[in-house]
Computed example of a mutant assay.
Amino acid sequence: MSLDTRLRSSLSLTAEHPARYALAAGRIFLGWIFLWAFLDKLFGIKKGTESGWLSGTSPSKGFLSHNDGPFKEVFHSMAGQVWVDALFMFGLGGLGVALLLGICLRLAALGGTILMFMLWVASLWPDTNPFMDMHWIYAALLIAIALADAGTTLGLGRPWARLVRNSALLR
């Protein structure tokens, strides 16, 4: 019996189970959060940015260059670098699309958790708690969504799984 089968049977997340819809809703909500951040940073919609990446503004420079945490030197040196901007934007856009469509959730959980960890480290220490903040909540939700195969409910997870059946990471 595969790990997926054992996990699904232990969680009892059948197609009719209400938890599947709660996880699917969480997947869609989180997907929109990431996609909106991507669109705002790309076009400069002025909901969180002054101007967009397409206008020549670095999506990472403002956040990383004003960091005062224990790793500020590292993040200040990364601020505005083309490779950092490209990875950040690819991460935001890829996470948003994958979560909204319910595809490639394992890779999204892995990449999203790494992104959340990096953002958490860059913003140390959280304002309201010495350890916990939204980055860990998002990472936990990403992992739960992938483990529960939440893309099969209200998403394209089933046809995607057939398409990439030979790659466990792309499921």
Rank of each mutant, 00 (worst) to 15 (best):
E50M: 07
G62D: 07
H17P: 06
M78E: 11
G80L: 09
I137L: 14
G69F: 01
T57G: 02
L124V: 12
D85S: 07
S9G: 13
D133E: 09
A98I: 01
L142S: 13
G151H: 06
S167N: 13
L54N: 12
S12K: 07
L95D: 11
I45R: 01
G96P: 14
L13V: 15
N166Y: 12
L100R: 11
L154Q: 00
A109G: 06
M78Q: 14
W83H: 13
H66M: 01
F63V: 15
L11F: 08
K47S: 12
I114D: 05
L147C: 14
V164H: 00
L42D: 04
W53V: 03
A86G: 03
A168G: 06
S60A: 10
S77T: 00
H135S: 10
F34S: 05
K72G: 03
R165D: 08
I143D: 02
L23W: 03
A144Y: 02
F63Y: 15
L105K: 06
M116F: 01
F88R: 00
L87G: 13
E16R: 15
I145A: 09
A19G: 13
D133T: 08
R162S: 15
G157F: 02
W125T: 12
G80V: 11
F43D: 14
D68H: 14
D40C: 04
I143P: 05
A150P: 03
E73N: 11
G157H: 07
L54H: 12
P159D: 12
P130L: 06
G93P: 04
R27T: 08
N67K: 05
V84W: 02
